[in-house]
Amino acid sequence: MLKKKTVGAGLALVASTVLIAGCDGWLGETGGEVDITAMSAEELADYLVLETGSYRLEQEAQEGGSARDRMTQDGIQAACSLEGDPDAETAGNVIAMARESYEAPPGGARLGNWRRGAELARSGYGYRVGHRNDDHGQREPGGNCYACHQMDPAEELYGTLGPSLAGYGATRGNDSAVVNYVHQVVSNPHQYFPCTQMPRFGRNNFLTEEQIAHIMAYLLDPASPVNQ
């Protein structure tokens, strides 16, 4: 097999391990050989993600920036890349980072329209890139809450990765302390649940403040089916 010469795309593949490896394009952009056994597992993982052409990193991301930005970890993502629960020190650092990066909405947190919130909670559309790209011009992205949470007790299809939120507002009310707390959890939940699996919907610009207000109404408005 090594003796076979194949000419393609202007490159002659010859029987050299180094050359063939270089032509496969992932042992460094310069074609130089990289010794992957000399790296720690963490270094190698970062190298594989960012330096080997494994992802379409130059693609535009819907939230702004590029796919490369998505794959470059921020402080919370890096600190929470662990198995199981964080230790006390990590948890403290993550809470501090989350508090520092939290932004209260201009004019304070408020409730929007629970009917709009119900649509957003059901929709799993938005922000996917790669072989197919979600087109936010065609369809509004949603919060995909039902993928992980029970909400309306009459809805049969719901995930269990997160806690049930059925009756959430009915047991807590919706005074300003509750509304502010729920906003903090939806926008940047690591303030209360360090290294939670829940996305930072506000911090990551995944949902707009208006959309968050609608989803909060779905959770907290006494008229919402979540609270029946």
Partner: peptide, 14 residues
């Protein structure tokens, strides 16, 4: 490295 990647958080949803 695959094990690290399995736990490596990233993307628009962390």
């Amino acid at each position: 490295a695959g094990e690290v990647l399995f736990f490596r958080r990233g993307g628009a949803m962390d």
